[in-house]
């Protein structure tokens, strides 16, 4: 069952230099209880997609089309007041840098209690009790209730962010690169806490990352984004074992593996600018399988196997299938 459906989302930024097509016709669903990973490099539109879901896109950006359906209701029709009742209560978000998103002059206790007082009308005492339970659950000693963010390490602050996000038992948690500022050992610990809580509460999660290692570790399904468009959508198994888009194949071929030394085959060229994105398929400028037709036609997403969509005109070609199986590993 889908708890969230994003369909045909278009978020553009109207800057003086031109219109930036940050998210251009992106669709995906989030099923109940699953972890959906949005994967992409910088400028792929993964963060803007998440912010669009919550209606947090600031000027000069604007959502100019598409639907965001939460349990059958279109969040885009909501007033700002109605949206405030959704944010933090039904959909919560964790950001990349906890230092930037925590308030430096409030104790972490006050910050975790705030959403409970706003959304759940809890008293100070009730909120405090719940906060202590949450802190314990994320592995922060309860004396830390009165600490300020600068007194805690990056990993601890990020766990405070989870506690805050979970304060009102949201149905959906959106995590935007929550571990990219953390060291590997701290990251592993953080992911463990996050995944345990997700299972315990049956939450659904959108996890944004550029790290395919984390995707392999936690995802149920994956959406691969590039230059504001969806390239491939599939289960985590399909993505790693049978990728059917040259961009996904390129990403997997350009990553060194910790288990075995392998040859790296990089993707040529640079990420395109989004003011004048390439015509036709946005990836054609860097694609080694590109043909004339790729310059003209925007490839539709088509199903290559059960639940596996690829936006490549040649998704079924022998070359691509060979590249996806042979050259890697």
């Amino acid at each position: 069952m889908n708890i969230l459906e994003v369909a045909g989302l278009k978020t553009y930024f109207f800057t003086r230099r031109g219109t930036v097509l940050a998210v251009d016709d992106v669709s995906f669903d989030l099923r109940k209880g699953e972890v959906l990973c949005l994967v992409g490099e910088s400028g792929s539109g993964k963060t803007v997609s998440a912010l669009s879901i919550l209606g947090l896109v600031d000027s000069p950006g604007r959502i100019i089309g598409g639907e965001v359906m939460l349990d059958g209701e279109d969040l885009r029709q909501y007033t700002p007041r109605q949206l405030r009742h959704i944010r933090g209560k039904r959909i919560a978000m964790i950001f990349q840098d906890p230092k930037e998103s925590l308030n430096p002059v409030l104790t972490i206790g006050e910050q975790i209690m705030e959403p409970m007082k706003v959304h759940l009308n809890l008293s100070d005492k009730g909120a405090k009790e719940k906060t202590l339970l949450l802190l314990e659950r994320v592995g922060i000693p309860k004396e830390r209730l009165f600490s300020y963010p600068h007194e805690l390490s990056g990993g601890m602050n990020q766990r405070v962010m989870i506690a805050m996000a979970l304060a009102c038992d949201p149905e959906i948690l959106i995590a935007d690169e929550p571990t990219s500022a953390l060291d590997v050992t701290t990251q592993a610990l953080f992911l463990k806490v996050l995944m345990d809580l997700k299972k315990e509460r049956g939450m659904s999660m959108i996890f944004i990352t550029h790290d395919l290692g984390i995707v392999a570790e936690i995802a149920d399904r994956v959406v691969v984004l590039y230059a504001g468009r969806v390239m491939e959508k599939a289960s985590v198994w399909q993505i790693f074992e049978n990728p059917r888009h040259p961009y996904t194949i390129g990403l997997l071929n350009s990553l060194p593996d910790i288990v075995k030394k392998k040859k790296l085959i990089p993707i040529a060229g640079q990420i395109p600018g989004l003011i004048n994105p390439p015509s036709g398929c946005v990836f054609h400028t860097r694609c080694r399988f590109a043909q004339d037709i790729c310059y003209r036609v925007v490839p539709p997403e088509e199903e290559v196997e059960d639940g596996h969509f690829s936006a490549c005109l040649f998704r079924g070609s022998a070359d691509i299938i060979k590249a996806s199986q042979g050259e890697r590993i």
Partner: peptide, 17 residues
């Protein structure tokens, strides 16, 4: 050992979480 164990592996078959 801790560093190696904590690093994510590019293979959904060896998931630990």
């Amino acid at each position: 050992k801790a560093l190696l164990e904590a690093a994510p592996v590019l293979n959904p078959h060896v998931r630990r979480l």
